[in-house]
Structures are given as structure tokens and as C-alpha cells.
Design a protein around this nucleic acid. Structure first.
Lengths: 148, 148
DNA sequence: TATTGTTATACTCTATAACTATA
DNA sequence: TATAGTTATAGAGTATAACAATA
């Protein structure tokens, strides 16, 4: 007993989540390039929609990225007209990032792109299976501290 | 009709696969660093186990990476004693990469690491749910042309 | 001349560190 | 002196292009 039967690496949940996740990320990245967006820009847009205005440092902490990267993302999104920087009058060191109407629309297009990608990725699954998969992934995301 | 109800980006399968996949990849990468391996080295080891000896250019094509990257991986794995380069006597341009006994053991340790990570990631799921998840991921991987 | 592997170089993404303005 | 944001610099990972050996 205790003899581990030989399990293939590719049969593990981790390997499959990693490879499918990478493929998914690559395809999504291609699509949003069309909008002039980088992958993490989408996370920033989503954050602003959900949590309202936030200072750049708050954003960096919430996204788990360096503050200098938030500068680059905010620059890019400002050029696209998707966000505006508003100086906090009470503390003029702070930049409040706010989503513009255009930013909201852009986020909507990203969501549509994700839904289209969903259909493409799960084309082989029947609807109950697809929904069950999404539910389990939601549980997993929640338990791992990811947005869900 | 046809009015799309507002779906959150984070509720899509694509977003969840992307974020969970990235987290999984990061954690797996940390673990195999202990063995002196980079992420894609593991894919190479697995390939050699499954398909037997292969030329470096075949490996590049199968892994979907540049030939120059295979050189770097083979260098690293050769130093670790995990693979050997054998000149093809029939065509001396070709280097046949073969897995050594040590390479086989190393791959085994990677598989164990993935299984441990599986347990960690799916700790919140009951066993039938965990198995159902793995089965659907296997279906997905197969339909997307990924190893499974 | 074409192909395999290698080396040299460049590009993308992101972090760390130095710096400026404000508190 | 401490903090928010910015700019400068560096490192990891990987691709493309130039090159050498062999066919």
C-alpha cells in the first residue's frame, strides 16, 4: 500500500488549469489589442467600475502590481479617453482615477469579447456542463482570493 | 428582446480560467524552481518521456516555442543531467534529445509537485466535484489541441 | 542551396530604485 | 520626515535574425 500509481503530469488539475489558462489569456489578449488595451488594463477598468474612484496606489495594491505600472496603465487609458485623473482637493498628492463614459463602453466591449471567447472555448460542452464548469471555477476563484 | 443582460467580466469562464490559470502557473513555477527548472523545461521533459527521442526542431514545433529557446532549455537540462544530446549518425546536423534516468526522476518530482498543488487548489471542493472538474478540463484541453 | 542547431540581438512585461511634489 | 505619483533603470522571458556546420 501507499504505492503511488503513476499519474501523468498532464492529467493533473494544475497542469490543465495552467495550459488552458495560458491559451485563454493569449486569445483574450489578442482580442483586446484591437481596442488598444493590454491585459491588465482590463483589470483596472473593471476595478474602477466596481469600486468607484480609487487612488493609483490603492489600485496598485488591489491589482497586485507595482505603482509604476499603474502610472503606465493610467497614461494609456487616459489617452484612450477611458479614464480621467482627478487631483484629490483634500490631498493634492493623490490622483483619483475615474472611469469615463467611454471607459465604461470599452469595458463593455471587453466583456463581450470574453463572452464570445467563452462560446469558442466551450463549444464542445453541453449547456449544463458549461454552467457547472463556470460555477466550480467561481468557487475556486473565491477560495483563492481572486475576483469572481 | 435581444437585450443582453449585463454580465460581469469576472463571471465569464474566460476571465476565471485566465486568472486561476495564472495563479496556478505562478505557484507551480515557484515549486519547480527548487529543482532548478523553468516552467517550459517541464513540458520538454514530458515530451521526451511520451514521444521518445526527438530532434530539437521537432521539440520546438511541438512545444510551440522558438528553436533558440530549445537550445537554452536543453543546455540547462543537460547541466542538470536530465537529458543528453545525441548526434544523429544518419544526419549529423540533428541533435536527438533523450531523457536520462535522472530526468525521469525529475519529471516524477514535478508530477508529485503538481498533485500536491492540486490538493491545495481544490481543498474546498468535495471529491466528486473535483473529479468532475478534472474531467471537464480534460475534455477542454483535448478540444483545444493541448496535451491531456 | 536548404536545413539544424547555435549565438547575437532586440522586444515585451514588469519590478526596483531614484526623484519630485505635497503633506 | 513621510507619502503619492512619476521617471529611470534593470531583469526575466522569449522571439527574430545572423551565423556555422552539415546535407
Amino acid at each position: 500500500m501507499n504505492a503511488a500509481q503513476p499519474v501523468s503530469l498532464t492529467a493533473t488539475v494544475s497542469f490543465r488549469l495552467g495550459t488552458i489558462g495560458t491559451l485563454t489569456t493569449n486569445r483574450f489578449t489578442e482580442r483586446i489589442e484591437t481596442f488598444g488595451l493590454k491585459l491588465k488594463d482590463v483589470g483596472l477598468l473593471h476595478l474602477l467600475q466596481d469600486g468607484g474612484p480609487a487612488s493609483q496606489l490603492e489600485v496598485a495594491r488591489l491589482l497586485g502590481v507595482a505603482p509604476s505600472l499603474v502610472v503606465a496603465m493610467a497614461d494609456r487609458l487616459e489617452v484612450l479617453g477611458a479614464v480621467r485623473r482627478l487631483r484629490d482637493p483634500g490631498d493634492r498628492r493623490r490622483q483619483q482615477l475615474v472611469l469615463t463614459e467611454q471607459g465604461h463602453e470599452l469595458l463593455g466591449r471587453c466583456t463581450t469579447a470574453a463572452q464570445e471567447l467563452d462560446a469558442e472555448l466551450t463549444a464542445e460542452l453541453d449547456e449544463p456542463t458549461r454552467q457547472a464548469l463556470n460555477a466550480v471555477l467561481g468557487t475556486l476563484a473565491a477560495s483563492l482570493g481572486l475576483p469572481h
